[in-house]
Amino acid sequence: MHQTSQQPAPGTVRDRFGALVWIIGSVQFFLCHLIVQSAWPTPYSWSLNNISDLGNVNCQPWGDNARYVCSPLHTVMNTSIIVGGLLIIVGIFAIESLWRRSFISWAARVLLIIVGLAWLLVGLTPADVEENLHVLGALFIMIPGNLGLMLMVLSARYGYMKTIRILATLMGIIGLVATGLFFSGHYLTLGMGGMERVAVFPLQIWNFIAGCTLLIAVVRERRRAALEALIEDYHEREY
């Protein structure tokens, strides 16, 4: 009981800000993804095209399969990726009630901060401009990101986070397996782009779910506190 009392309660200004930051970061990324792909003069395929194709600067055949890549709104996509990386980092520092005070918790946060920095690198170095740095950034998004999610079951602490802690670990395992399959060229029935998304999307999806869960917990906490205040006020009037 004493240890629990030392933990910050959900609903601080920083918690709410961090939750909103994570939600906004995820929503803007997926929204920009859809907007940018819709502007392609040729059909964009989630199976045949990878995410990086949306940020390529030039219109040309690209990749091992010489797919034609032409993304008129590449600046929008690269900006979205950079913003998404920054918001991942901001959310990690802002949310107080999520993390335990343990080595594993610090390790998870460091891994996720690395992911945020990797998103910045990917957005700043389009694949057809600086391919080596871009691939390095993608590698650091997939591996540390999914490892960080896997550690969440031991690094997040509040009871209301139990479900999403388990979800994070499951998503991290799936993402890490998908990373291995992607880089080994085993795409199963998903195609190159599909397998890449299974490896990359887990953190963005989890950030959205975690942010929403935290905001819902804030609402419930406020309702509980308000109810307790009403009951206490009623008893004081009675006696």
Rank of each mutant, 00 (worst) to 15 (best):
Q3C: 11
Q6P: 06
Q7L: 09
V13I: 15
L20I: 10
L20D: 03
V21G: 01
W22Y: 13
G25A: 11
S26Q: 05
Q28S: 10
I35T: 03
Q37S: 09
S45I: 06
I51D: 01
S52W: 01
N56V: 07
V57I: 10
V57K: 02
P61Y: 15
W62Y: 15
D64S: 15
D64I: 12
A66H: 15
V69R: 02
H74C: 03
T79W: 10
S80C: 09
I81Y: 05
I82M: 13
I82S: 06
G85C: 07
L86W: 07
V90L: 13
E96Y: 09
S97C: 08
S97I: 00
W99A: 00
W99S: 01
F103A: 11
W106T: 13
L112D: 01
I114T: 10
L117R: 04
V122I: 13
P126E: 06
P126T: 06
P126Y: 05
V129S: 09
N132Q: 12
V135N: 08
P144T: 06
M150R: 01
L151Q: 02
L151E: 02
I164Q: 05
R165W: 02
G172K: 01
G175H: 03
L176Q: 04
T179C: 10
T179N: 04
L181V: 05
F183G: 05
G185L: 12
L188I: 13
V198Y: 04
V218H: 07
R223E: 12
A225R: 13
L227D: 09
E228G: 14
E232H: 15
E238K: 15
E238T: 14
